[in-house]
Design a protein around this nucleic acid. Structure first.
Lengths: 149, 149
DNA sequence: CAAATCTCTATAGATGAAGTAGACAAATAA
DNA sequence: TTATTTGTCTACTTCATCTATAGAGATTTG
């Protein structure tokens, strides 16, 4: 299970992706639109700022915006930033690898081999899906492009 | 991430599967062999007993044994018994379905569609892998069959 | 300066994970 | 019957994490 925090982060980023060319977006606008507790969202956006996914401006007319292209922010990385490893056990994680305390011999652990398949299947999906791949986003972007002609 | 409890449950069941035809196995034997805290394992085995995966006998010469055939106990079900849903979000779980609090329209939620793919991929692996599928177990069973001739 | 925004620090309640302790009940064997 | 072995049950602890909330502070604009 991913945390609510990670889900909120995804929703917020998706919202920012939709508004990508409208400049800065208010925290409170995102919170209202996506029904995320405002103060909680603040904390999430700070995390995402530290990770250099978003940037912000203070003061009047301030707000948040994406730093990177929505086509370069993968869902997998967003979840990792908030929740940590996607793998079901630490011992099959690439980025958060840690040996199991109780494991006698990792190289022959059958559970590990099975969990590695789960990890790979999960990462195959989440690491190849980017914010820009969500159809609403792309549909909206196509619309906007059309409007710009 | 699955819990340690679920991992311990799997290891204990796998151990019981290996000893399947040797009758009752002591909690303390499993605990020592798999390096699981003994008292914690007790609690886990009670859970598995409630779920009718194992059965036990008290008193001298007592112990635990599997109730079902190792070829009929899937890893997915074991994890579900201990940890609950395999799905990354409740709203794509079959057995533990629950609507997301903040979701405006589930039918068009893009995150949901993506997570459904993750759930399906995970379940495809874990619900089709049974205790008997672990090679050590099967190898040992083959050996034992040979010895019985 | 006043208003609008983000920022930082602190706190808090609920929940669950992981584990421990100890008395209790049942089966068996001497 | 009694001692021993083994699982059972209840309760508790400790610690961490999740999900927030409150409020003062810093910054920018008009």
């Amino acid at each position: 299970m991913i945390s609510k925090k990670a889900k909120y982060a995804l929703k917020a980023l998706l919202y920012l992706a939709k508004q990508h060319d409208r400049g800065l977006v208010l925290i409170s606008e995102i919170a209202t639109a996506e029904r995320i507790p405002r103060k909680f969202l603040e904390a999430i956006l700070v995390d995402l700022k530290v990770q250099q996914i978003v940037q912000s401006t203070r003061g009047k007319n301030g707000g948040y915006t994406l730093v990177k292209d929505p086509a370069q922010i993968s869902v997998g990385n967003v979840i990792r930033m908030i929740d940590g490893p996607l793998a079901p056990v630490h011992c099959v994680s690439h980025l958060y690898y840690k040996k199991c305390d109780e494991c006698v011999d990792e190289s022959t652990c059958e559970i590990r081999l099975l969990m590695k398949r789960v990890r790979d299947a999960t990462c195959d999906i989440l690491d190849t899906t980017y914010l820009a791949d969500f159809s609403k986003v792309t549909a909206l972007m196509v619309e906007e492009e059309a409007n710009q002609i």
